[in-house]
């Protein structure tokens, strides 16, 4: 095979590979992209996607954690200091889950209750999920502007 043909072969193969990869990628990308939605947007503005998972984040409200004795299912209230959202979760909680801690929950909304299948709380007592910081900050900024 001549060098020119070699190059054509290489270019052709890479191109077709790239095109296939690109199509599959973007399709899968759309399906697996997960939005972070603030609690206020969920509660007041009805921005929660239907039939699709998304992330919410906020602080766990004190004394809001309830569970039936012996059951893995529990519920707590998340707040962005403006609105509150009840979250239900079944399973083992992350180590740093506790009242007053910033956490992120992944799941779906069902009749104004957030059904989480994953709870994230990172391993640092001072850590706060970035989305939570931002959504708390949004609120502070808005109040300053006279809300």
């Amino acid at each position: 095979m001549k060098p020119r043909q070699q190059r054509m072969l290489a270019v052709g193969l890479s191109l077709s590979g790239l095109i296939i990869a690109a199509i599959l990628t973007f399709k899968a990308f759309e399906e697996n992209m997960m939005f972070f939605i603030t609690i206020t947007d969920v509660v007041e503005n009805n921005k929660a996607p239907i039939d699709r998972e998304f992330r919410v984040g906020g602080l766990v409200v004190s004394d809001s954690i309830t569970r039936e004795t012996g059951s893995l299912t529990m519920s707590f209230i998340l707040t962005d200091n403006r609105n509150q959202l009840t979250v239900n979760y079944t399973g083992v909680l992350p180590d740093l889950f506790r009242e007053g801690q910033g956490v992120v929950a992944i799941g779906k909304l069902n009749q104004n209750v957030f059904i989480a299948d994953t709870i994230l709380a990172k391993h640092d007592e001072n850590y706060m999920p970035p989305e939570v910081i931002d959504s708390l900050k949004d609120h502070v900024a808005e109040t300053k502007e006279g809300y």
Binding site: G17, L24, A28, F29, N32, M34, F36, E131, D134
Partner: peptide, 18 residues
């Protein structure tokens, strides 16, 4: 354009391609 995250499922599918 919004805050998103790309989870493990996407990487798992995308990696199958190559």
């Amino acid at each position: 354009m919004g805050k998103i995250s790309i989870g493990a499922p996407w990487f798992e599918i995308a990696m199958l391609v190559p």
